[in-house]
């Protein structure tokens, strides 16, 4: 996944990658990543848990806007199946510094 991100970024298109394999992501060198310690096959979480899935998307889009240098890996620290999720406040992505790069 990281190698694909690098190829896309190399043609000038920004990428944000969900990582479920931290050491591999760091070794490959990915432009921007959100890491969660979740089982393989579940980068956005559990099936039919839209608040969880959308929280991951929200964090990824926020990182896409805010990152000022390559190689940033953020860790929200979500535990597997032991968190409560709410619908993200999407308006945060539309206002504030960094929202319009």
């Amino acid at each position: 996944m990281g190698l694909i991100a690098r190829a896309i970024e190399a043609v000038g298109i920004p990428t944000v990658t969900i990582s479920i394999a931290k050491d591999l992501t760091l070794a490959v060198g990915v432009p921007r990543a959100i890491f969660v310690k979740w089982p393989l096959g579940h980068p956005l979480g559990e099936p039919h848990n839209p608040a969880q899935q959308r929280t991951m998307i929200f964090l990824a889009l926020r990182l896409l806007q805010e990152a000022q240098e390559p190689g940033i890996l953020q860790e929200p620290g979500f535990r597997w199946r032991r968190e409560e999720y709410a619908e993200p406040d999407w308006s945060q992505l539309r206002s504030g510094p960094g929202a319009h790069p």
Binding site: M1, L3, A5, A10, I13, P14, G41
Partner: peptide, 21 residues
């Protein structure tokens, strides 16, 4: 991977969201 990157450019894509499995 470069082939897909070129297709994204051709499609006018502004960013890509990547998920592993």
């Amino acid at each position: 991977a470069p082939e897909v990157a070129a297709k994204l450019r051709a499609d006018g894509v502004d960013f890509a969201f990547l998920t592993p499995a």
